[in-house]
């Protein structure tokens, strides 16, 4: 992959930046996410996680050490009005 390959489109993170994070010793997905803000944009990791996993594998991280970032609600972005309009719970 060319060094300027975009890994995370939402946050404009390139391969070079992922390699810099690796060089600093951050080899797990959660650390890299927090160091680069990779996966924190509009897609919440849906687009970039597979690419990051591939880069980590290619750089020698063991497959069982590559865990996906924690998935949280909502599953997909939804307007605040949709959450607010729910009836009060008893």
């Amino acid at each position: 992959m060319p060094r300027k390959t975009i890994i995370c489109r939402c946050e404009d993170i390139t391969l070079v930046e992922v390699e810099e994070a690796l060089a600093l010793g951050y080899r797990d997905v959660e650390s890299i996410k927090r160091y680069l803000a990779l996966g924190t944009g509009a897609c919440q990791g849906k687009m970039c996680l597979a690419l990051l996993a591939r880069v980590l594998l290619e750089r020698g991280v063991a497959p069982d050490e590559i865990k996906p970032m924690v998935s949280r609600a909502p599953l997909a972005g939804a307007p605040l009005a949709a959450f607010a309009a729910e009836k009060e719970r008893a």
């Binding site: 509009a42 919440q44 949280r72 609600a73 909502p74 307007p79 605040l80 009005a81 959450f83 607010a84």
Partner: peptide, 20 residues
């Protein structure tokens, strides 16, 4: 939180929540 946010800034009603 959605109700409180919309009450304080009505124009946020159509803005998407990404993560909690």
């Amino acid at each position: 939180i959605s109700r409180l946010m919309i009450r304080l800034i009505p124009r946020l009603a159509g803005v998407k929540m990404l993560r909690q």
